[in-house]
């Protein structure tokens, strides 16, 4: 390195340093923000979705219905319409009732045809509407047992009765007795991605391609039941002749 140059070069460096620092300062103050804060739109959650109230309102005991502004119980009509006489008759007033309760597909399995204000047990004994769980118990004994012990069904209030009232819902406060399966629900919105929205772009075909481990016998059986079924029938056909 020649020593003839340094002082001129040095002068240049020294002269440029001040302005360079100044422009750096300007950049810090007026320069663009280099990072966009990747914050997503917050989910919209209707307050009703978070209600802890029972999902169903139950009928009274005995159930009543307003007809021409008169409150009627079941027997008010069924005194006349004797269902016991025609148990398989058309459901005139109750056509809207859609019974989807497994193999339990007869009204009289639960309703007391001799006193329509009540429900009926196997032995013909009556159960009032307010005791509905006893009716359900006749088929769902294990679940009833769980419910009695507090491990089936929705509970709210205190986690121990020593510290406050424990509210336990009865069967029909969640389940529609005619369609006891929970109706499908609209799930609340998922997160927009990781909290800071920095998820990579998902590859075509989605990130969770289930076919990736098709070698898994369990998965194969679950995903393509017809495969294993076909194999069996084919084999059966081979064996026949």
């Amino acid at each position: 390195m020649s020593t003839a140059q340094p002082s001129t070069r040095g002068a240049w460096v020294a002269a440029l340093m001040g302005p360079a620092f100044a422009s750096l300062a300007a950049w810090f103050i007026w320069g663009p923000a280099l990072t966009r804060l990747p914050v997503g739109k917050p989910a919209v959650v209707p307050d009703a979705a978070l209600s802890t109230a029972a999902r169903r309102t139950t009928v009274g005991d005995p159930p009543t219905i307003l007809i021409n502004n008169f409150r009627r119980t079941c027997t008010d009509c069924h005194r006349i319409f004797d269902v016991a006489a025609r148990p398989e008759g058309d459901r005139l007033q109750h056509a809207h009732v859609k019974l989807e309760h497994g193999i339990n597909d007869r009204c009289q399995n639960c309703h007391n045809y001799r006193n329509m204000n009540e429900l009926v047990l196997y032995d013909g004994g009556a159960v009032t509407y307010s005791e509905a769980p006893r009716l359900c118990q006749k088929c769902h004994g294990l679940i009833f047992e769980d419910w009695e012990r507090g491990i089936h069904g929705r509970v709210s209030g205190a986690w121990t009765s020593e510290l406050g009232p424990v509210q336990r819902l009865r069967c029909i406060e969640c389940h529609d007795p005619h369609q006891p399966r929970h109706p499908a629900m609209d799930p609340l919105q998922p997160l927009p991605g990781p909290a800071t929205l920095r998820m990579g772009t998902p590859p075509a075909g989605g990130a969770h391609a289930p076919e990736l481990r098709e070698g898994d016998p369990l998965r194969r059986a679950l995903l393509h039941p017809q495969l294993s079924g076909n194999n069996r029938t084919e084999r059966a056909q081979h064996e026949k002749p």
């Binding site: 929705r154 406050g164 629900m185």
Partner: peptide, 26 residues
């Protein structure tokens, strides 16, 4: 003494909470 919020809101009663040391708890 109250139940957690996630439990109370569960529409299907899938959630259970309680005191492990109390043999009668859920």
């Amino acid at each position: 003494g109250r139940m957690p919020a996630c439990l109370e809101v569960c529409p299907v009663g899938a959630r259970n909470f309680g005191n492990l040391l109390d043999p009668d708890s859920q």
